[in-house]
Computed example of a mutant assay.
Amino acid sequence: MSTSSHLAHNYHPLPVELATGEGAWVRDSDGREYLDLLAGYSALNFGHRHPALIAAAHAQLDRITLTSRAFSHDLLEPFADRLARLLGPLLDQRAETLVLPMNTGAEAVETAIKATRKWGYDVKGLAPDTATIVVASDNFHGRTTTIVSFSTDPEARDGFGPHTPGFRVVPYGDAAALAAAIDDTTVAVLLEPIQGEAGVVIPPAGYLPAVRELCTARDVLLVADEIQSGLGRTGTTLACELVGVRPDLVLLGKALGGGVVPVSAVVGRGDVLGVLTAGTHGSTFGGNPLACAVGLAVIELLETGEHQRRAAVLGAHLRTRLTAMVDEGLLVARRSAGLWAGVDVDPGRGTGRQVSERLLERRVLVKDTHGQTVRIAPPLTIEQEHLDWGVDQLTDVLR
């Protein structure tokens, strides 16, 4: 690896330089093989270089890659139609389901903020510049200036003011606090059904249903950020399905691009997304032909339900193994949903970073968060024997 760099230091990566990848395995520049148990923070739900996704990208590269939205192309409507058909039954269906394609997760969040505010003014009749959105503490929705304005993580927020107004932060998992924060200016509640960056934090069982009930009663939009949790990760297409909740809007990213290209989307009620008209919002690359080709291939993988079922089965196995580690005293706690887990390390056994570095030496890739937590999010295509081998390495490191 190079000892000097002209790269801005906005990340603190583990000391490995990856060169190739296939499925759940990657190789570094020296040819050493590693098991990837992070999967690009769920961007690689289908593994590295999934054959169907790579084939779709290759085929589209020979046709056309970008038109801008000044023109249409032959995959834009099919992409929107297939995504709406996949997710529409899982969302509030009081209006036709629409899809607004963007590029990154943060752009999807920003798009939802704009759409819900404009809906508040155009439909609810709020006075100009008064709309508020309720969010949760310990959230992670991206790193733009607007989004970090309602972050409670000092590292993400401090030094980037003045911060954007219009957001009310309440404790995650506290439905009573959320109810108290809603008033006549509230247009939306923006939540992660499971908080990923916070360490795979799962709210109490009745929390999201209570939020849904509150939003319906107060004519407030429920916006579910499923950028990390969605598209099979939790053993369901959306994490909201786990508790039977149908959001008004759902935000997608990461896995929607299959680890090939950045693809994101806001999907939901047409009467909400319909307030955005020509000139009010856009993106040069949003919904480009290459993104739609890969996105369509991702949707096709999800339509069978195979990857969701696989995540549920392997996730149950992972949960059993991690629970045994808690019982043995190797871990302080574990939280999991589908093939996604956050484990808390006893400080006496090292920090999350130190555990991640020791696993790197054993050819297993994970990443720490918030000091003592390590996240585990393998590709949904991982073989059980390989998952077990990775957990064995974690067990040995902690022992």
Rank of each mutant, 00 (worst) to 15 (best):
T146M: 13
T320S: 12
D368G: 10
L387F: 06
L301D: 06
L231G: 08
G166E: 02
A333P: 02
T152Q: 05
P378V: 05
V391K: 02
G40E: 07
D122G: 01
N288L: 07
G159I: 09
G348P: 02
G120K: 02
L394G: 01
H12T: 09
H50F: 06
R49T: 04
G47S: 04
V332P: 03
G315C: 05
V134E: 07
R363K: 13
V391Y: 05
Q60L: 08
L44Q: 07
G120D: 04
V267E: 02
A198I: 01
P247V: 11
A136W: 10
D327S: 11
H281R: 08
T381H: 13
D153Q: 12
D388Q: 10
V109I: 15
G161P: 04
L322D: 03
M1F: 15
A341M: 06
G199S: 12
G350H: 03
A324Q: 09
Y207P: 00
V223A: 06
A255Q: 05
L91F: 09
D219R: 15
L256H: 02
L251M: 11
L191T: 13
L221F: 13
R335Q: 13
D346R: 08
D271M: 06
V355R: 00
L91P: 04
A337F: 03
G305M: 13
L126I: 12
T146E: 09
R82F: 07
M325Q: 12
D219Y: 11
G350W: 01
H386G: 05
A95Y: 04
G279E: 04
I113T: 01
A205V: 10
P51W: 05
L273Q: 06
T351L: 03
S72A: 12
L83E: 01
A181G: 13
V364M: 05
G21P: 09
P204L: 08
V223C: 03
G338D: 13
A84F: 04
T280P: 00
S29N: 11
I147M: 04
Y41E: 11
